[in-house]
């Protein structure tokens, strides 16, 4: 059971180096580059909580909110 969350994405800009990986890796095009180059959730409602941004951020600066009743999103890479 997938639950949509209003703003599940948390960005810790103090650690962010603006590499753009989270924006590119997001399968739902949720993130965009803001004015200072930091990512922000432009379409948070589209987030499926797959966690790809989380595991691909080299600086541990983005995470999606843990919600116990969210079914673990599955994704197959390759």
């Amino acid at each position: 059971m997938k639950q949509k969350n209003d703003d599940p994405i948390h960005i810790f800009s103090r650690w962010c180096k603006k590499c753009g990986i989270c924006i590119a890796i997001c399968p739902k095009n949720v993130l965009e580059s803001g004015t200072a180059g930091y990512p922000y959730a432009a379409r948070p409602k589209d987030c499926i909580m797959c966690g790809l941004c989380d595991i691909h951020c080299p600086d541990y600066a983005i995470t999606v909110k843990k919600n116990s009743d969210i079914k673990e999103a599955e994704h197959e890479e390759t």
Partner: peptide, 26 residues
Amino acid sequence: MIHTSETMYKYLRPDKKFPHVWCAGC
């Protein structure tokens, strides 16, 4: 799913300087 950012806080040494030394995108 193991949340990287949350898990990292468990394992990173709090007395080290962050963000880490590696270049943007490394």
